[in-house]
Design a protein around this nucleic acid. Sequence first.
DNA 1: CGTCCGGTTGCACTGAGTGCAACGTGATGG
DNA 2: CCATCACGTTGCACTCAGTGCAACCGGACG
Lengths: 192, 192
Amino acid sequence: MHPVPAREQQRRDSWRALQSAAVELVGRRGFAAVTVDDVAAAAGVSRRTFFNHFPTKVAALFDPDPADVELLDRLLTGADGSAGLWPALRGVWLAFLADHRGLALTPVRRRLVADPELAAHMRSAHLFVEVAMDRWAAGQLPGDPVTASLAVHTAGAVVGSAFATWSPDEPPAAFVAAAARGFDRLAPAFPG
Amino acid sequence: MHPVPAREQQRRDSWRALQSAAVELVGRRGFAAVTVDDVAAAAGVSRRTFFNHFPTKVAALFDPDPADVELLDRLLTGADGSAGLWPALRGVWLAFLADHRGLALTPVRRRLVADPELAAHMRSAHLFVEVAMDRWAAGQLPGDPVTASLAVHTAGAVVGSAFATWSPDEPPAAFVAAAARGFDRLAPAFPG
DNA sequence: CGTCCGGTTGCACTGAGTGCAACGTGATGG
DNA sequence: CCATCACGTTGCACTCAGTGCAACCGGACG
């Protein structure tokens, strides 16, 4: 592997220290009871540095790890759409859910979305997944953007429903399994 | 009809004046370039009164008119689930989309969601629809909350996809029609 | 060794959102 | 008709989120 330059390393360290601190503090005290200063102090950096890494307080909770963005890109470029859009979306989503770094934070995040305002922010942070899939799907079905959009949105709904009915007391794998069942149930609507 | 007490009337007037002013100003200048003071001034009330009606600036753009919340409740209590969950959800969604007050604001809102942050907020504001439908669907399928949740989430995805692919230059009716086609295409996944 | 680059920091500023006390007017009851 | 209450509105002061700017400092590079 390429040795990471010290500059880049420090950057990643600050990012992860801030996200860990934010999730940990908010999970313990609740969103409103944690200030940006608290998070910065817990991460050992200044308040200004916090905003160098995250544009908002919620971003610190939900922004995807760059490694996960990269993972999704790899999965999409390697995806095989020959058996139809739906099986491909199913495969990419399930592989992504199972392997991404953010999976470790999923139980905490699941508890946070009891606040509907935070739920919306989480969706917006995870929107990069649907955007990337949308671009990919549109490329697969050049002549039919409506079908592509419908499939991607529906796939997102499957994952969202699995997330909503999943209890954070269960292991994250149960969440992934529930998503898989959801994909199977909707398959009849998307014939190859 | 019951004559509305003057107190209640003033309340509604302020609410609608603020929402109109907010949508109008933000549609013209963009979200960041409009302050709460601007909106309050344009509506002819004080800054403090703004926050008496809306908890946040985005709420002024996307909070549902109480009349629409009431409309949805009426549609759900009158809904007939005997032919299956999916046709019932289809009927309620399409009737709601066609008749609700907010429809007039839909083109402006469609343009606003170019900003993904605002898109997330709109979804959260429209979440009351899915929450109400979720409660209703859970009542229809007491033994199977997973199917109920999946159907409601999927229905939301159909509407979301129609909204995303709809151009605000077309009439709002085209958006409703696109949603109807989406419901039809997903019907095979939800047999009676 | 000198120069440049880039992450970090402090400072000052705008604007969102809140708690509180006060005012004015419609609703209510004697 | 008047006293009282209820409630939408308002001003004020305060905390905190988010931003622009200039300065600092240590690693990268010739």
